[in-house]
Deep mutational scan, measured.
Amino acid sequence: TFELKGKVGKVVKIAEDHYLVEVEGDKWIAYSDEKLSLGDRVMVVDVDGLKLKAKRIP
């Protein structure tokens, strides 16, 4: 999973306390310091076990 750092994905679902992000065809649980919206493009900035930390990108 460490190779996911720096990869770009898309928010495909918003849950109460996390997001579901699709990166290279796989879906991952993600969290972010900022509020994300459905369809936002994100970059993986860190990997915490099986969770990704994501940041919105333009």
Rank of each mutant, 00 (worst) to 15 (best):
T1C: 15
T1A: 15
T1H: 15
F2A: 15
F2R: 05
F2C: 15
F2M: 15
E3A: 03
E3I: 03
E3M: 02
L4G: 12
L4K: 06
L4V: 13
K5M: 15
K5W: 15
K5T: 14
G6E: 04
G6V: 01
G6K: 01
G6L: 02
G6R: 01
K7G: 04
K7H: 05
K7F: 03
K7A: 07
K7V: 02
G9K: 00
G9Y: 02
G9C: 06
G9A: 08
K10E: 14
K10L: 13
V11N: 00
V12A: 06
V12T: 09
V12F: 09
K13N: 12
I14L: 14
I14P: 01
A15T: 14
D17V: 09
D17P: 10
H18P: 00
H18K: 09
Y19L: 06
L20T: 11
L20Y: 12
L20F: 12
V21H: 00
V21D: 00
E22I: 11
E22W: 07
E22D: 09
V23T: 03
V23F: 05
E24A: 08
E24M: 11
E24I: 09
G25K: 05
G25V: 04
G25F: 08
D26S: 14
D26P: 04
D26M: 14
D26E: 11
D26R: 13
K27L: 09
K27I: 09
W28V: 02
W28P: 00
W28N: 02
W28M: 03
I29P: 11
I29D: 11
I29C: 08
I29S: 12
A30H: 01
S32P: 02
D33H: 07
D33V: 07
E34H: 07
E34L: 04
K35F: 11
K35M: 12
L36Y: 03
S37D: 13
S37W: 13
S37I: 13
S37T: 13
L38H: 08
L38F: 10
L38W: 07
L38Y: 09
G39F: 11
G39D: 14
G39H: 13
G39V: 03
G39A: 09
D40A: 05
D40T: 05
R41Q: 14
R41S: 15
V42R: 00
M43D: 05
M43T: 08
V44E: 00
V44T: 02
V44G: 01
D46V: 03
D46C: 05
D46R: 03
D46L: 04
D46F: 03
V47P: 02
V47A: 07
D48L: 08
D48A: 06
D48P: 02
D48C: 13
D48S: 08
G49Y: 03
G49A: 05
K51D: 04
K51I: 13
K51M: 09
L52F: 03
L52V: 12
A54W: 07
A54G: 04
A54Q: 00
K55T: 08
K55L: 06
R56N: 03
R56W: 10
I57W: 12
I57T: 05
I57S: 05
P58C: 14
